[in-house]
């Protein structure tokens, strides 16, 4: 392969493709985290993943494996923590702890500043073949999981009593979505940054919930919107030589503001039982 092509692949196409795959995956994941009122999970898993990546780098291991390990560990104990600390505070608590650990590691360990900066700001130019493979695997795994359990996730959120009465197993929902969310976020923060990844989970799902005519349409629109925003932000950050994470968050925020005039007319909202006021009981 000519050296210019090799450089272009390393510096441009591989990171762009990795980010594009992650953007679509995060937006799809965001729909289900919003359905479960767990979008704080995106910040918590992302920040814990960042701390794990920094810790791994300090120990001489591959950051991506450290991020995955830390994120998986937290997903594994999440339900136990929620039982002991009721009140929907577990994810904010994990976010705060992850943020604290990340900054302390960056401040005190030599050689991790650059990775620390990439994790907080997001970056454009570095994506290993493992990162690209991980992003592709994440999209495939999430799509396969939702094909298997997507309908049950909806049923468990809307009618948990019927879900229980049918004796449908709850463990694939409880464990599966947590493990997938933690893995995807841990992978995403290394290229998109913590806030960039959170913005991709939160904003497309939020606006699509308000505007999509059906769940099926929402599942198509959220990844497409995220992909569009990602590509726009990638080009803008490259062109204006700006840090990628903030540009991505800005683009997503502006796109969200552009959709405010597209508000759907709801029926009788006074009669509606608010989705947001009724957390799922599974």
């Amino acid at each position: 392969m000519p050296i210019e092509w090799s450089l272009q692949l390393e510096l441009f196409w591989r990171p762009a493709l990795t980010g594009a795959l992650l953007a679509a995956t995060l937006a799809l994941l965001g729909l289900y985290l919003r359905l479960r009122r767990e979008y704080w999970a995106a910040l918590a898993y992302g920040q814990i993943g960042a701390a794990g990546a920094l810790g791994a780098m300090a120990l001489g291991a591959l950051p991506i494996f450290g991020g995955l390990a830390a994120s998986f560990a937290v997903a594994g104990i999440k339900h136990r923590l929620e039982d002991r600390l009721p009140g929907a505070g577990v994810f904010p608590l994990l976010f705060v702890l992850g943020w604290s650990a990340s900054l302390l590691l960056t401040a005190n360990l030599p050689g991790v500043e650059r990775l620390g900066q990439a994790l907080f700001e997001g970056q454009l130019y570095f994506a290993s073949p493992q990162a690209l493979g991980g992003a592709a695997a994440a999209l495939v795994a999430l799509t396969a999981f939702l094909r298997w359990q997507g309908k049950r996730l909806l049923l468990a959120s809307l009618n948990p009593e019927h879900f229980h009465a049918r004796k449908l197993p709850a463990w694939p929902i409880r464990i599966g979505i947590d493990m997938l969310a933690s893995a995807v976020l841990a992978l995403a923060v290394t290229s998109l940054g913590v806030m960039g990844a959170f913005a991709l989970v939160f904003i497309p799902a939020w606006r699509v919930f308000a505007l999509a005519p059906s769940w099926r349409a929402a599942r198509i629109a959220a990844p497409l919107a995220a992909l569009f925003a990602y590509l726009l932000a990638f080009a803008a950050a490259l062109f204006f030589d700006q840090p990628f994470g903030p540009v991505l968050a800005l683009v997503l925020g502006l796109l969200a503001l552009c959709t405010t005039s597209m508000g759907r007319k709801a029926g009788n909202d006074a009669e509606n039982v608010s989705f947001q006021q009724n957390p799922p009981r599974l």
């Binding site: 359905l35 019927h162 059906s214 769940w215 929402a218 709801a266 509606n272 039982v273």
Partner: peptide, 16 residues
């Protein structure tokens, strides 16, 4: 099959 007195929480959810 079970139907309770709670209405499914659907406000803000894109479900037909």
């Amino acid at each position: 099959g079970v139907q309770t007195q709670h209405q499914p929480p659907v406000a803000g959810l894109p479900l037909t």
